[in-house]
Amino acid sequence: MTAIDSHAHSHGDADHGHHAHSEYPFLAHHFESPAQQFDSGKLGMWVFLATEILFFGALFALYAIMRAESPEVFKYASHYLDTTMGGINTCVLILSSMTMAMAVHFAQRSKQGPLVFCLFLTFLGACGFLVIKYFEYTHKIHANLVWGPGFYKPVEHGDGHAGGHAAADAHAATATPSSPNAVMTEHPVLGTNPGLASNSPPLFKLPPVESSTIKPLPAGTPGVSLVGEGDETQHQAEVAEAAHEEKVHLTDPEMPLNTHRFFGIYFAMTGLHGIHVIIGMFLIGWLMYGAAKGRFNSNYYTPVDLGGLYWHIVDLIWIFLFPLFYLIH
């Protein structure tokens, strides 16, 4: 309380009295001073950020384990991601983080105009990030570079590429006719590649289905890969070149088993991050509305500060996601 000097309250309050609550109309009844209220909000936000870190941290742990289990998958599949787009997105997010920090700066100095402008720039950054992400996602989905059984979906239309037919033949050869699957019929699943799928027996199988409560496996689902891959560096270069072509992975005999897992974790992590970006956009929009109404000033800017912390953590997570997915040599 001693630190509060008289010029600080910009609100013309009827009672410039001795009581902090009449002096600071924003002060909630259960707090004694603006400093206590501000510190509580800050601590609460940091505790929340800690939960966010553990929330994503579990996914990072999952990533580390999957990569330790099958480094060849990550090395191979990373080349299907577009580093340029990822890099641009990183810069967009960093810049929007910077404008958010500037917004806090202007809020602390009661500069209404620059505050709204910086928040608007931050909002634009979030939109830009999502637009680029949208193009990346649609390209991946179009090329069947997706999670799960869809990864092995054959090419449906004749595009002159022989691979689709080869893969479909492999499917006919390896699919087990005894596993009807209501859920999966629209997603027929192929063996990962003709050579391995037909030659190596599955290393373990679920026991024959007895109980009706167990759903049968999708036909021809690739088993757990316990077989390491040989050197594929030469082939990777070709693949990287051809990565923009449709469904090229289906015809690639060098593709490691379980490559779909890379795209599973890729979509899980970037998707969760994208959801956070969308939440952040609502938040920034709400802050923009409040700032335009003149709610924030050097005495009271807690919402801008806390919203900023949230937006920075979104940026911070992407800073790790980018090298982990896009930059695998």
Partner: peptide
């Protein structure tokens, strides 16, 4: 979606 993290049939690890 069968993304293959926990389900062994999709290459996942149930012990994880």
């Amino acid at each position: 979606f069968h993304i293959g993290v926990f389900d062994p049939a999709m290459g996942g690890d149930p012990v994880l």
